[in-house]
Structures are given as structure tokens and as C-alpha cells.
């Protein structure tokens, strides 16, 4: 019974990712596009860890940590470009 619940929750996360992609592609300003990409990526991390429990493979969970770290770096790049005009290189 647990495996069916895990599959149903992963479908809910995919629907949330699809709804958020519409904002990331069309959004009025640059800021809410970056916020939508942030939320899409963190939902993708949960999807990956859920599927690694479902497939019964523990090696697939190490992928989740670099995703969470590098998408924070993208936030800092865009914020520094908008505030100062150059990235100081």
C-alpha cells in the first residue's frame, strides 16, 4: 500500500512542476521567473528522492544534494547582476 501512495504523491509533484513552468516561461518580470525556477528545482529534488525509495536503489539519492546547492548559486548571480550592473570579474 505504501508504494501506491508514493506513486500518487509523485504525480501530484509533477502536476505542480508543470503548472509552475508556465510562469517560468511567460512571467511578466525577470524576478518571478527566477523564483519559479527555484521552486521547480526544489520540487524536483523531492521527486528524485521519492523515486530512489521506489526503485530500491540507494545510490540515486546522492544526486539531490548538488541540485539544491547549485540553484542557490544561480539566484546569487542574477541578484548581483541586477543590483550592481557587473559581476566584478
Amino acid at each position: 500500500m505504501i508504494w501506491e501512495i508514493i506513486l500518487a504523491i509523485s504525480i501530484i509533484y509533477t502536476i505542480a512542476i508543470a503548472l509552475l513552468t508556465v510562469i517560468a516561461l511567460k512571467g511578466p518580470t525577470l524576478g518571478d521567473q527566477v523564483l519559479a525556477i527555484d521552486t521547480i528545482t526544489y520540487a524536483t529534488v523531492v521527486l528524485m528522492v521519492l523515486f530512489s525509495v521506489f526503485f530500491k536503489e540507494p545510490i540515486l539519492t546522492v544526486v539531490a544534494i548538488p541540485l539544491a546547492l547549485w540553484i542557490y548559486a544561480l539566484d546569487i548571480y542574477v541578484a548581483k547582476y541586477l543590483e550592481k550592473g557587473d559581476l566584478g570579474a
Partner: peptide, 9 residues
């Protein structure tokens, strides 16, 4: 650049 990062994700 933002669209390209989304596609890579």
C-alpha cells in the same frame, strides 16, 4: 540565460 538554465534543469 534563464531559459537555458531551466532547460538544463
Amino acid at each position: 540565460v534563464v531559459y537555458s538554465a531551466l532547460q538544463s534543469s
